[in-house]
Design a protein around this nucleic acid. Structure first.
Lengths: 195, 195, 195, 195
DNA sequence: AATGAATGAGATTTCATTCAT
DNA sequence: CATGAATGAAATCTCATTCAT
């Protein structure tokens, strides 16, 4: 949990945050549909109605989560988009490096997305994210890239997104794993760059 | 739809099949939780109770789907596992090629898996599939493979699984796309093989 | 209650009817919003879910009630509309007489309407009824009737609609009261006819 | 809106009034049950808790509305009651005329009553109003009036109460309509007087 | 091989109300 | 004079499931 309060006896004003934390945790684990507001409320020690004081609907909780946690990643993509095009290999490498770092901080969010793809499609934010991805791909690929290179790029990004969870039962330090994924992704982009 | 009957005037005995078809279609699109038996029954023009004549529970429908559609893939993996180890590059290539073909025939199933990962975890069959994957990875990698090569291999397989859906809004003929994915996957395995 | 069954130990197939009966009774007494499905279900000795087997929504119960009980009145109005126009006084009198009879049989429905006017406005059927009234008024009035005569006519119809409930605490036999209302209404229409 | 303040820049002390205004408006339109305190508060730009500073309960808002707006009408009825009995026709006419004027000023209140009859029954004030009506009827009718004349009288009063809303979709100037209703009512009372 | 009728559990959501500040 | 935060109760509705026929 992120919101550590030094005075545990009585928290005030952080209920909204705590709802988001618990919701993210539960939904990432069980999926959106299977996570009920009752469950969230119970774990927080409040009533269901309290959730509705802070959020208009169940969906609203998720949307707020998304906006909050996606912000740094959106910023990064915006920065990447602004780099001169066609970008030199060095820039592409930096984009990937930074992206990897940003992802590892938003890991729970991406676990959530991974496990709730059906939901994402209806959550409006899904489209938004797809557009961002297109921007990122456009920056990492020459415009006339072959289909194979396009697949390389998509595969690289996709592996970074899903990597952390898929590698859960591979032994090894998480940071090492992250660097390994980054290396593979960088390789793929490098190959696509040469052609 | 796959289940074409030669005598269209009166279907008999194919209800089980039709339930599976509709269930797969709906669940792949909307997710397991969001797809209700009412919806499946309505689309088939039967009552919910009819579903219970053919399957014991909702979960049972999914499990049956899985067993049926996963069979060819399981066979393939069994065959791969039986190849002498360490496998030469040529064998690995063949495994990938055959795997790609098998996957493209079970595409809806993999879409289903992709979009219902939370469910898969509770469906027992999830574990089963994970074990199979381990077997496949073991056959495609040297035993002392570096973490990076391990990531390459996992990334290759993962890309093949998810590829079809992720590439949905990339233009191009599906078969061409499949071959492009196969090429990238083969590349990754080849690199891992050399080291 | 209308649906008297001779074998009280086990009713079958009449649940839909019984839901309508109880709903009408309760809603007429307490209003639409204040009557909960729980209450209806409890009084019937079934679960709330059973109501949803027979009707799609709470509103649907009311709409069905309406369609069923309004049918004879609609028929009557249709008949009235088909009479040659301008109608002679005798015809107008007959319309009123028949209308009074029809109303007294649909009394609970009109109590319902009287007490749930806010609801009626959203129930679509409200509009329908208003149109019918216009037809009836058109048949009872000369086309160039003065505003005062128009008010006479509306007042007559309105008194017939509301009469039964408003006269609840006037002593006297219900049938006598009905005839008194009919007489006043006929008077009003007669005056409007003369002018 | 009635509550015009001469200093528009800053309202003070008129919140109570504004709550009543908004509540009357909304409840007349949607009904008591369907109008929530949230809605009232939102439209006023205050919180629900603020309503509870000014009124003890939701019902209290309605009761206060009633007391305030009903006062002139109660006064009028009291005056009518004090007239010598049996009243001459001229007096009855004056009562009706004044009543019509009083009603047209309390129009929203009567719309409210019209549309919330179920509620009125539980609001204690309902009984109160019924008693007043009895007083009024007693003054307008000979004591030994026939049932028919009794109906005439009730019909007259009822038409005045409901008239404004029922005539909503009849074309014409509101004041003209009011006079037409008054004329019809006076006619009815005059007939009852003669017998 | 399937239906009609029903259930029990639980979901999301809304409401009037309270109270410390 | 009013708010921010919360509650308890209840509402409508949906779902997987059962069972006699």
């Amino acid at each position: 949990m992120v919101t550590g309060s030094s005075k545990p006896q009585q928290r005030r004003g952080d209920t909204r945050q705590r709802i988001q934390d618990v919701a993210l945790e539960l939904i990432a684990e069980q999926g959106y549909e299977k996570t009920s507001l009752r469950e969230i409320a119970e774990r927080l020690g409040v009533t269901k109605a309290a959730l509705y004081y802070h959020f208009k609907t169940k969906e609203d909780i998720v949307v707020s989560l998304f906006s909050d946690l996606m912000a740094p990643i959106n910023e990064l993509i915006t920065w990447a988009k602004e780099q001169p095009r066609p970008a030199p290999l060095e820039t592409k490498r930096e984009i990937l490096t930074r992206y990897s770092e940003a992802l590892s901080e938003a890991a729970p969010l991406f676990r959530f997305m991974q496990e709730n793809q059906a939901q994402m499609r209806e959550l409006s934010i899904g489209e938004n994210f797809k557009d961002r991805m297109h921007d990122l791909i456009a920056q990492l690929l020459p415009e006339d890239a072959s289909l194979t290179d396009r697949v390389r790029c998509i595969s690289a990004l996709f592996s970074m997104h899903a990597g952390m969870f898929v590698l859960k039962d591979v032994e090894g330090d998480p940071e090492e794993k992250r660097l390994a994924i980054l290396e593979v992704a960088t390789d793929l982009i490098t190959q696509a760059h040469k052609h």
